[in-house]
């Protein structure tokens, strides 16, 4: 039996006296796009960082549902991209390959340039972060995340600080590349209801618990009462 879900069981995390994640149980389907929504400071990024291994949970497990396969490598797209600003676009994208894989110089260049072409970044290969636009930086971060062919990519508020037009293009980029490369997306976002258009499933994190879990369609057609005010404050 091959794994079809990422199982998160009793995941807990606290900082001092503040309980951020309170024994969260969640089943995230592999190959799909799952978006985690919730108010600011509710612990969405903490949840994502626990999955990525950047934070050690106090309790709970993260595993695949076949209980055999180890959790696949997760790439992570940071809110502010976390690109190395003293390196060129090429070097940023090449870094995971150069440092972790035994690969010839020519193969490395081929793979990086192919990836840059796929993300329409070939002209920016020798530029630095400061010399390219915000949208391009986002694509470079995505290229760096994709270069190792991960099965899961975690997106931490990828549209923060972008205008509506750029937000749309980032969402469109994620949708397009997910279709192209077939990875699983777990995303944290504030951009409701726009983000529902590209999400297969939505989880609502509230007071340390998953207060709602369902498909985007069911959420839009029949939103639970507590969530209505969050999705559309004017209607509340």
């Amino acid at each position: 039996m091959s794994a079809s879900q990422l199982l998160i069981q009793s995941l807990s995390k606290r900082f001092g006296d503040q309980i951020v994640l309170d024994a969260i149980d969640l089943e995230i389907p592999l190959g799909k796009h799952t978006t985690l929504i919730g108010r600011s400071g509710v612990g969405k990024s903490v949840f994502l960082k626990c999955i990525a291994g950047l934070l050690e949970p106090d309790a709970g497990t993260i595993a695949l549902d076949d209980a055999v396969t180890p959790v696949p490598h997760c790439s992570y797209l940071f809110q502010q991209n976390a690109l190395f600003d003293s390196m060129t676009v090429f070097d940023n994208v090449a870094m995971p390959l150069r440092e972790k894989e035994k690969i010839s110089r020519k193969d490395l260049e081929d793979r990086v340039f192919t990836m840059l072409e796929q993300l329409d970044l070939q002209d920016a290969a020798h530029k630095y972060q400061a010399e390219i636009s915000g949208g391009m930086q986002k694509r470079v971060a995505l290229a760096r995340a994709l270069i190792t062919k991960p099965e899961i990519i975690l997106f931490d508020e990828p549209t923060t600080g972008l205008d509506p037009e750029r937000k749309f293009s980032v969402f469109e980029m994620i949708r397009q590349y997910r279709q192209q490369f077939g990875f699983t997306v777990i995303m944290v976002s504030h951009d409701v209801p726009e983000v529902f258009k590209i999400s297969d499933h939505v989880a609502w994190l509230d007071q340390g618990k998953i207060a709602y879990w369902g498909t985007s369609e069911s959420l839009l057609s029949d939103p639970p009462s507590g969530l209505t005010s969050f999705i559309n404050p004017q209607l509340a």
Binding site: A52, G53, L54, A82, K100
Partner: peptide, 18 residues
Amino acid sequence: NAEQIDALHTMRIRSLGF
């Protein structure tokens, strides 16, 4: 602060060694 050290971790690169 720029989360570059966390980024190294997610790329499975040991930040102390790097």
